[in-house]
Nucleic acid binder design. Structure first.
Lengths: 145, 145
DNA sequence: TTATTTCCTATTATTCAAGTAGGATTATTA
DNA sequence: TAATAATCCTACTTGAATAATAGGAAATAA
């Protein structure tokens, strides 16, 4: 039961755009280099974020991407659901799923609890939280040197 | 991020063996019929449970399987880890994993929280809990009729 | 000795993850 | 205006994993 690179990279992209946001455009190439991800693969992932309006794009030379809203407004859950699809641990719990045995399925209740627990975590962390942690870390590093 | 049929079926097997336990052997064929799973595929899954000592087997005619210990002693987590492997949402958190970027990875902390939440759920439900729920359901059904 | 059951291993079909590749389109800038 | 730099779009590939299917060997009860 793993989160795929698609979802993980999407979170990294949003984090990177928030962390390095100066109002200027940020190129895929730069994100790929910083996050150590294939540039071409990242293009596809950021395209999903773009279509969903999570980021804004500027085409042409000196173009790139910017985070569309404030980092506080993006939870990890939003980003994972967009890129990974449902975070339900079993298909029975996906939206629009039909299962005849669900009424008499004791295990389903466990999966429901698991689903709730997963959602609770990913819906209560925002990109802003991740940026804050990095800033804090950078701050404490200054003291070390 | 889905639990595979292997893990789900393994839980169903343990549940079935506990629910229908009379001290007699239970055949794979019967479990497969009750749980609506391919017999041959179930053989492979129950073999894992058998090797781990979660069930005891009796070969030959009138043979079959019995749950080895009390249903209270088997958590869902034990069964899933045995059949699925680690339940960590990212490979970085698997045992023996090595990741150079972990020290400066803010997202990892989210995955850790997620991992903890997952473990908390699956380690606090036992097969006995599932059986109890079924018994309760059966009891209330009697009143309905 | 026959029927029944577990045990063991190999094979397969399908799907999905994770990228790779190539070029079209759009905009800046020299 | 031409060169350059960037996003955009689509198709393809490769490898691994999932979810079985298949066939028979070994063990045991009746």
């Amino acid at each position: 039961m793993k989160i795929s690179t698609k979802g993980r990279y999407a979170v990294k992209v949003m984090f990177d755009l928030a962390l390095n946001n100066t109002g200027e455009c940020i190129k895929v190439k730069d994100i790929a280099a910083r996050q150590n991800i294939s540039e071409k693969y990242l293009e596809q992932i950021i395209a999903i974020l773009n279509k969903a309006g999570y980021v804004n794009s500027v085409r042409g030379a000196q173009g790139g991407y910017r985070i569309a809203r404030e980092p506080e407004e993006y939870t990890i859950g939003m980003i994972l659901r967009l890129t990974e699809g449902s975070m339900a641990p079993v298909a029975c719990l996906d939206e629009g799923a039909e299962c005849e045995q669900c009424d008499t399925c004791e295990t389903l209740e466990v999966w429901k609890d698991l689903y709730d627990a997963i959602n609770h975590v990913i819906d209560n962390v925002t990109i802003a939280d991740l940026v804050a942690k990095r800033r804090q870390r950078e701050g404490s590093l200054d003291y070390c040197i």
